[in-house]
Amino acid sequence: MNFKNFVIEHKQALLVILVAIILSPLFALAADAVGYSEPLEKSAEHLGAEESPIYGGILPDYSVPGIDSPFGTFLAGLVGSIVTLIIMLGVTMAIKGRRN
């Protein structure tokens, strides 16, 4: 499988992913504006459970340290999608076995 063929054959799916990544900073801003909070956080708050973080990640909270929020979110999304694509392709190749 070469890179060029992969892009040509799957341009539509790649485009959909790219659009999601481009939109992600807008969703992040909107989530901030409405005070985004998931049911798990509600549950924790209700029972007084507190996080004790031991590891922040390389790109903590989908942001790039030192880069302003919306562009940082976009970069984090781009990096994350590319890493996920490569890892999943690699894993699938490694375990795919032999068919037919």
Partner: peptide, 9 residues
């Protein structure tokens, strides 16, 4: 690979 990347995004 594309499904995983799409779900991440």
């Amino acid at each position: 690979g594309l499904v995983a990347a799409g779900i991440f995004a």
